Computed example of a mutant assay.
Amino acid sequence: MARAPGFWFRQPGPWSAALAPLGAIYAAGTARRLSRGGRARVGVPVICVGNLNAGGTGKTPTVIALVQRLSDRGIRAHVVSRGHGGTEKGPLRVDPLRHAAARVGDEPRLMAAFGPVWVADDRVTGARAASDTGAQAVILDDGFQDPALAHDLSIVVVDAAKGWGNGRCLPAGPLREPVATGLARADMVLSIGGGHAQRQFAARWPALPVPHLTARLQPLKTGMDWTGLRALAFAGIGHPEKFFATLAREGVEIVRAEALADHQPFSPRLLTRLEGEARMLGAQLVTTEKDAARLPDDFRGKVLTLPARLRFDDPAELDRRLDALFD
């Protein structure tokens, strides 16, 4: 996915006003698709981790956190993903040792380290495959705007710093559907970011109609001391600047930061350039876990990754909702 236009995340101006009629058409198309009835059930609870924005908001770390939270309860959850960036239509259970990111997508390959993951272009078929092979719960990675499958718990994830941007739908803004329309179907909102970003988000959207959880991504303590490391950092995620800021907080000296498009393929030419520039700068290549999942096996050993996990500020409401699903 290409980088989002800057005007999406500013107060509405001339560009968003000019594109507003197209945004209204997009919103109407989403509403029409969602109005189709007959949502399927697959015999186990389905938890949807979705968003209102196009692009990255933190769904992948949220899915991983839910898999681990359910595992702590003795519940075996399978993840179902469309496998964005991959060619596989599925349903296929992801084996990270056999399936390259080019086939199944980088996010499924990363999530498969934490539990069973299915790639399926048809989410109902993927959820049934998961249920038929022993899943006690299905976690949908995205799918909030897909009317085919019934959701027992819907969590809308939003980046606290970016919020819902200018509040307009594509291409006038970042939204797949209007905020009020989407939240009318949601069970809770999860905003991800640090304290300042969370305060900004709460000030901009102070009266949400559903419970509001907050969380932040925290680097894992792996025993490595990042202080003073000279790095050429690169990231092809929704908001690469957040990864670069995290590295800086860990004490990394970023001599060059390369922001790539979300899910951008690593061509041999790109990797050769990055490796050459790092050598000239005397810097270590560093990237995200998601990006590392797309690297060729023979290149991955040249790159360090900074793993991070989602930490909830107060998970009580989430735990209550999860427990209610399995009473």
Score class of each variant (00 low, 15 high):
residue 43 G to Y: 00
residue 72 D to M: 14
residue 53 N to V: 11
residue 100 A to C: 03
residue 261 A to F: 13
residue 224 M to E: 10
residue 39 R to G: 06
residue 153 L to T: 12
residue 224 M to Y: 07
residue 227 T to P: 00
residue 234 F to C: 10
residue 5 P to A: 03
residue 144 F to L: 05
residue 94 V to I: 00
residue 212 H to Q: 05
residue 76 R to A: 15
residue 239 H to R: 13
residue 318 L to S: 06
residue 230 R to G: 11
residue 68 Q to E: 15
residue 115 G to F: 10
residue 168 R to E: 13
residue 169 C to Q: 03
residue 15 W to G: 13
residue 164 W to V: 01
residue 155 I to C: 08
residue 209 P to S: 06
residue 175 L to N: 07
residue 265 P to V: 10
residue 294 R to I: 08
residue 163 G to T: 05
residue 252 V to A: 06
residue 303 V to I: 15
residue 213 L to W: 06
residue 12 P to S: 12
residue 274 L to W: 02
residue 32 R to E: 01
residue 182 G to N: 00
residue 92 L to V: 14
residue 5 P to K: 04
residue 285 L to R: 09
residue 33 R to K: 13
residue 100 A to P: 02
residue 51 N to W: 04
residue 97 L to P: 00
residue 132 D to Q: 15
residue 309 R to P: 05
residue 212 H to V: 09
residue 234 F to H: 01
residue 285 L to V: 14
residue 293 A to N: 09
residue 316 A to N: 13
residue 45 P to I: 05
residue 138 V to Y: 02
residue 28 A to Q: 10
residue 7 F to P: 10
residue 297 D to C: 02
residue 72 D to L: 14
residue 99 H to G: 06
residue 196 H to D: 15
residue 286 V to K: 12
residue 15 W to T: 15
residue 297 D to I: 15
residue 86 G to M: 00
residue 165 G to S: 06
residue 15 W to Y: 11
residue 6 G to M: 11
residue 146 D to S: 08
residue 55 G to Y: 10
residue 30 T to W: 05
residue 30 T to M: 06
residue 277 E to C: 00
residue 127 A to I: 11
residue 225 D to A: 09
residue 44 V to G: 10
residue 308 A to V: 15
residue 29 G to S: 03
residue 39 R to N: 01
residue 112 A to F: 01
residue 52 L to W: 00
residue 189 V to R: 04
residue 29 G to K: 07
residue 314 D to G: 04
residue 282 G to T: 09
residue 321 R to F: 05
residue 299 F to L: 12
residue 263 H to Q: 08
residue 80 V to M: 04
residue 106 D to F: 02
residue 274 L to T: 01
residue 69 R to A: 15
residue 121 D to M: 01
residue 313 D to A: 06
residue 192 I to Y: 12
residue 84 H to G: 02
residue 197 A to N: 08
residue 73 R to A: 02
residue 83 G to S: 08
residue 313 D to Y: 05
residue 306 L to E: 04
residue 245 A to T: 11
residue 33 R to T: 04
residue 69 R to K: 15
residue 253 E to R: 13
residue 200 Q to V: 07
residue 204 R to G: 06
residue 67 V to A: 07
residue 181 T to Y: 11
residue 86 G to P: 01
residue 49 V to Q: 02
residue 157 V to I: 07
residue 248 A to L: 11
residue 30 T to Q: 01
residue 104 V to C: 03
residue 249 R to H: 09
residue 127 A to C: 08
residue 236 G to E: 14
residue 66 L to Y: 12
residue 188 M to G: 00
residue 59 K to A: 10
residue 281 L to H: 11
residue 148 A to W: 00
residue 164 W to H: 10
residue 171 P to N: 04
residue 43 G to T: 01
residue 304 L to C: 02
residue 113 A to Q: 07
residue 240 P to N: 08
residue 282 G to M: 11
residue 59 K to C: 07
residue 115 G to Y: 12
residue 31 A to N: 09
residue 184 A to Q: 07
residue 79 V to T: 03
residue 122 D to L: 00
residue 313 D to I: 04
residue 72 D to H: 14
residue 154 S to W: 00
residue 8 W to I: 03
residue 324 A to K: 10
residue 136 Q to P: 09
residue 310 L to G: 14
residue 242 K to F: 07
residue 135 A to C: 09
residue 176 R to N: 04
residue 164 W to P: 02
residue 7 F to M: 12
residue 210 V to N: 02
residue 126 G to F: 02
residue 205 W to T: 10
residue 267 S to P: 03
residue 159 D to I: 07
residue 96 P to M: 08
residue 120 A to I: 01
residue 101 A to H: 07
residue 234 F to E: 05
residue 225 D to P: 00
